[in-house]
Amino acid sequence: MTQPWPELDPVIHAQARLRVMVALSTLGPKDQLTFPRLQQLLDMTAGNLSTHLRKLEEAGYVEITKTHERRTPVTYVALTPLGRRAFEAYTEGLRALLGPRGEPP
């Protein structure tokens, strides 16, 4: 299968992962979000979210921290600096493809 938009990062250019990246990009620098809260905000199933997070983690875009709070295991998710840059490059790439008026050139 051919990639129709070879300029765009294939890790980010998929609906579910793009939504994850947008959600995490709204966090402040060094902030982390719990897995259940991310799941609730994105309205995704835990399994589906885990799958996409794993792909983003393999690319080095997302950092997953497992910890304990009051003896309960908690998983925190955040963008890495690389992930933040990749997301910025991706949105810039989109704008470049669409041209200055937001229409395909």
Binding site: Q3, Q15, A16, L18, V22, L41, T91, E103
Partner: peptide, 26 residues
């Protein structure tokens, strides 16, 4: 790549903006 992920750049940009607005609201 997964089939559901086939987005045009315009759809993709619209998704980003829509998602940002929704997150800001929620």
């Amino acid at each position: 790549m997964d089939r559901e992920g086939e987005l045009s750049p315009a759809e993709s940009l619209a998704l980003i903006e829509g998602q940002r607005a929704e997150l800001r609201r929620r």
